[in-house]
Design a protein around this nucleic acid. Structure first.
Length: 546
RNA sequence: GCGCUCGUAGCUCAGCCGGAUAGAGCGUCUGACUACGAAUCAGAAGGUCGCAGGUUCGAGUCCUGCCGAGCGCGCCA
């Protein structure tokens, strides 16, 4: 139970004792102004109708009862009827010592409930990851860490397709380059649609090195599949390399092809047919998705007998459900924002509960350099790859910037700011606080892991503010998990770093007085721990030195 | 045109379940290093929370309309 919840319990029992009323929702918050206490509640105001009395009087009575709790030191009624609480030093140290004992496990909850399948990135292997994928990767990976910390069981999957039209185009693009190496031509159906980017030349060069010119003497149509396979393997390896570079991991890479091979696609379409939610028209099989909340009906099986993308994807989600996941959260790019309704319709047709399928849309990232947006055009092949971005700003900065703002909003990524290793950069601000503490412990010749806390020592205002911020961590994690937002973590870390720096400026840690020194070292150790676990949730390093 | 998401300080963004005087960082201006890291701290200036209504003790937050931006609206994936 976090501090806020403990205060809520105190309030609820005080209300029960004073009025014999059982309140279910008690709103407790940390006031922005320290004058308003460590915690405050508006129960007297919010439930004015229930009490049918002057909110201030109600608040007074609740406060009188709550004052008896050892947990609180002081209670005050303020304004129109807010109740402000100051916690006792004993209570704060009790919590802080718990934090020190638990270390980086502090704020973590025991895993329980149905497992969640988090699917993200899922870019097809037709080229390197670009900066948009980077945001999805950073968001998805951080979210999975946050969900786990908050006690959800999470499995991460990357769904990809290495067959189909796009892959054929990739194969042709590479084949053309490959033939070009030997001064030969490669016949293509539509030269306009080929991938122009440089990586196709790289793949071709690797291919030539591996097989020589043997593909030039074989039948192009037959060879093309082999070239395409080589190219997709190459791209997938490239993507995995980039992912591991950004510390993004998956439990499973799920290939669409396996769904065809196992017959699950066919079986799923058959089940959809039996559900009565499909019909045939103009030689195609349609899903009557408009009856299930979608804008229009969608084709499942094309006139030529092949499946649309949706068919195997529905099969994939059915598979997720059958594997025992209670929820499937798909992280999609903004360009797929219109996709969820048809997916939901397909699953509902099969009787899968509506809330099984959930989606988080990650908005675009606009790169800014020199105050101007960086122009990208997929056609011209000058898309900025994630690797290029990482080369330029580094992995820590990239991951931090990606999740600093809500994934739901479009965001600007200022390269000039990101590249600066200075006070202007919030990543370094947080990391600096961590390094600074590490430095204190080096000087003290003490180990932050084994620091013990203090019992009931009174706290100076800056110490108290720091302590309260530290103890807010579990709530922040839980709140982020519940909302499936990552950005509350950077926001929190920056506030925590500020509280620490403020404390550090005013109070010297390594003083002669043993009691004071112990107390402050304990606060430092606790801060270091929380900074480290917070950064860990983001996949950002916590340096001992900078 | 319809749908989804968004609109908060010069810029980038927070703002929980409707609460007290709307907050940070950057930028601008002014201060602070002969004790633990100045990649820091203290202070100042900077706001009709897109606009207009509504709900109520109370609205940046909820509802409606409008304006503006992005994305989507394929037998592509």
């Amino acid at each position: 139970m976090n501090l806020e919840e403990r205060v809520a319990v105190v309030v609820r029992s005080a209300v029960r004792e004073a009025f014999g009323i059982e309140l279910n929702g008690v709103h407790v918050e940390r006031p922005g102004d320290a004058q308003h206490g460590d915690f405050a509640t508006n129960v007297a105001l919010a439930n004015a109708k229930t009490f049918r009395r002057n909110p201030r009087e109600v608040a007074r009575e609740i406060a009188n009862v709550a004052e008896g709790e050892a947990f609180v030191e002081r209670v005050e009624v303020a304004g129109p009827g807010f109740i402000n609480f100051w916690l006792s030093p004993e209570a704060l140290w009790d919590e802080l010592n718990g934090l020190l004992r638990e270390g980086t496990r502090y704020g973590w909850r025991e895993a329980s409930g149905e497992p969640v399948l988090l699917e993200f990135v899922s870019a097809n292997p037709t080229g390197p990851m670009h900066v948009g994928h980077g945001r999805q990767a950073a968001y998805g990976d951080s979210l999975s860490r946050i969900l786990e910390a908050a006690g959800r069981k999470v499995s991460r999957e990357y769904y990809f397709n290495d067959g189909g039209n796009q892959i054929r185009l990739l194969g042709e693009s590479v084949a053309v380059r490959y033939a070009g190496i030997y001064g030969e031509e490669w016949p293509v159906s539509d030269p306009e649609s080929l991938y122009q980017s440089e990586y196709t030349a790289e793949i071709a060069a690797d291919l030539a090195e591996k097989v020589g010119r043997k593909y030039l003497d074989t039948d192009p149509a037959a060879t093309l599949t082999e070239v395409a396979a080589f190219a997709t393997d190459w791209c997938m390896a490239d993507i995995k390399r980039t992912l591991s570079r950004t510390r993004v991991s998956f439990d499973r890479f799920f290939n669409e092809k396996s769904l065809y091979e196992s017959g699950e696609v066919e079986r799923t379409v058959e089940r959809l047919r039996e559900s009565g939610h499909t019909y045939e028209e103009e030689g195609a099989l349609w899903l009557a998705s408009s009856e299930l909340g979608d804008d229009k009906d969608r084709v499942l099986v094309k006139r030529d007998g092949t499946y649309t993308y949706m068919a195997p994807d529905i099969a994939y989600h059915v598979d997720k459900c059958e594997r025992g996941f209670g929820t499937s959260v798909d992280v999609l790019g903004a360009d797929h924002a219109g996709y969820p309704p048809r997916m939901k319709a397909g699953l509902m047709a099969l009787g899968i509960p509506e809330d099984f399928y959930d989606v988080e849309i990650v908005r675009l990232v606009k790169l800014i350099r020199g105050g101007e947006p960086v122009k990208v055009s997929r056609r011209a092949g000058n898309v900025v790859t994630l690797d290029e971005l990482l080369d330029e700003v580094g992995e820590d900065v990239a991951r931090y910037f990606y999740v600093r703002s809500s994934h739901k909003t479009e965001t600007n990524f200022d390269l000039d700011l990101a590249i600066k290793q200075s006070d202007e950069n919030p990543v370094f601000y947080v990391q600096y606080a961590h390094a600074r503490i590490a430095s204190i412990f080096r000087r003290a010749e003490a180990d932050p892991e084994t620091v013990i806390g203090a019992t009931a020592a009174p706290l100076a205002p800056e110490e108290r503010a720091l302590a309260l911020e530290l103890l807010d961590f579990p709530r922040v994690v839980e709140n982020a998990a519940a909302r499936r937002e990552v950005h509350p973590i950077p926001t929190y870390l920056e506030t925590l770093a500020t509280r620490f720096h403020q404390f550090y400026t005013v109070h010297r840690v390594l003083v002669e007085d043993d009691e004071t020194r112990t107390r402050r070292l304990a606060l430092c150790a606790a801060t270091k721990t929380v900074l480290r676990s917070g950064l860990e949730l983001l996949g950002v390093s916590a340096p001992e030195k900078m």
